[in-house]
């Protein structure tokens, strides 16, 4: 069969003919191009974020040495003689996130173990969407809740707690991220094969022993990944801290004090009227870049940990 036979063949009149045609269908090409274009928008947005953050931060760092930014212990960009040390904002962010984790990790993990190993399927299917409503409540409402409900409540337990503090918003953010932990951890635990549980039960272990000694260790990376993703959420949370944690940068790890986080600072500056191109304007992009890198590294870490558990079975 020669090449010419093939070439002639396409031209031969069959009952309907077989054309050489992918190109003969322009609508296909148009559709595919448009879809690809839409998919590339995700890449474009990421590039846009990196471009804007880096461009404005670069301008910022021509005024502020990067070493000062990373080591100075004061952040007073609006003062007469401004200081630009990110550490106080980082400390605030970290403290709030730790409080949130201290609340959400036990509650989320216990809820996950309970739903995965103890609860009936019906209860599980009913409760999950309701839990997810917790993370669907607008953050500004949670801010209100932290400032006007949780903090007054805490003031009764912790005498001398100021109206603005990191404890209240930390706990409220913890409430917000419980669904992330419980839902992702539960998925990880339910992915543990049944035969592992059966092996444990067959040896006379109780449900709790099986859950704690067999299921939880087998699901470790999934559970840990859920913690990491939850931290990433807590770090990026804005309104709750902007409303209830105060807006004074304060290098402290004491949750009963008021302090600003990175996000709260950005909101504070954006609420004012800083001229475009001023160093104050650029400072929020430098803070934003720090936040972006922080959450990005948490997300990447969480992604890697999670991928490991997928490969486990």
């Amino acid at each position: 069969m020669s090449a010419s036979a093939v070439k002639n063949a396409t031209a031969l009149p069959g009952r309907r003919g077989l054309r050489r045609s992918r190109l003969a269908r322009p609508s296909e090409f148009v559709a595919e191009s448009l879809l690809l274009f839409a998919a590339l928008s995700a890449v474009a947005i990421t590039l846009g974020i990196v471009f804007i953050l880096v461009r404005e931060s670069a301008a910022f760092f021509t005024h502020v040495p990067i070493v000062d930014f990373l080591t100075d212990i004061q952040w007073t960009p609006l003062f007469e003689s401004p200081r630009y040390g990110i550490l106080p904002l980082l400390a605030g962010t970290l403290t709030v996130s730790l409080v949130a984790l201290a609340f959400a990790v036990p509650v989320g993990t216990i809820t996950a173990v309970y739903l995965s190993e103890f609860a009936s399927p019906r209860l599980r299917e009913t409760v999950k969407p309701v839990l997810e409503l917790l993370s669907g409540v607008p953050t500004v409402v949670f801010g209100y809740f932290a400032l006007l409900f949780v903090t007054p409540l805490l003031q009764k337990l912790v005498p001398g707690l100021p109206g603005f503090n990191m404890l209240g918003p930390g706990i409220v953010i913890g409430i917000m991220i419980v669904p992330y932990i419980s839902s992702l951890s539960e998925d990880a635990m339910r992915a543990v094969p049944m035969h592992l549980r059966e092996a444990s039960f067959a040896m006379g272990a109780s449900r709790l022993q099986t859950a704690v000694r067999v299921v939880l260790p087998a699901a470790t990376s999934g559970v840990v990944a859920s913690y990491i993703l939850a931290v990433s959420r807590a770090v990026g949370e804005t309104m709750v801290v902007a409303i209830a944690a105060g807006q004074q940068p304060n290098l402290t790890f004491d949750p009963t004090e008021a302090a600003a986080t990175i996000t709260a600072f950005i909101v504070q500056v954006a609420m004012g009227d800083l001229p475009h191109g001023s160093i104050g304007y650029q400072s929020i992009f430098a803070a934003g870049l720090t936040l972006f890198l922080l959450t990005l590294s948490f997300n990447v870490l969480g992604w890697f940990v999670r991928r490991r558990y997928r490969e486990a079975y």
Partner: peptide
């Protein structure tokens, strides 16, 4: 290799044959 369809005498597997048309027939 080839799958030749008759009476057209074309190779169905040739890269320039449109699979969509093949599936109609």
């Amino acid at each position: 290799g080839e799958i030749r369809l008759y009476p057209d005498d074309v190779n169905l597997l040739a890269p320039d044959i449109d699979p969509v048309e093949t599936r109609i027939r």
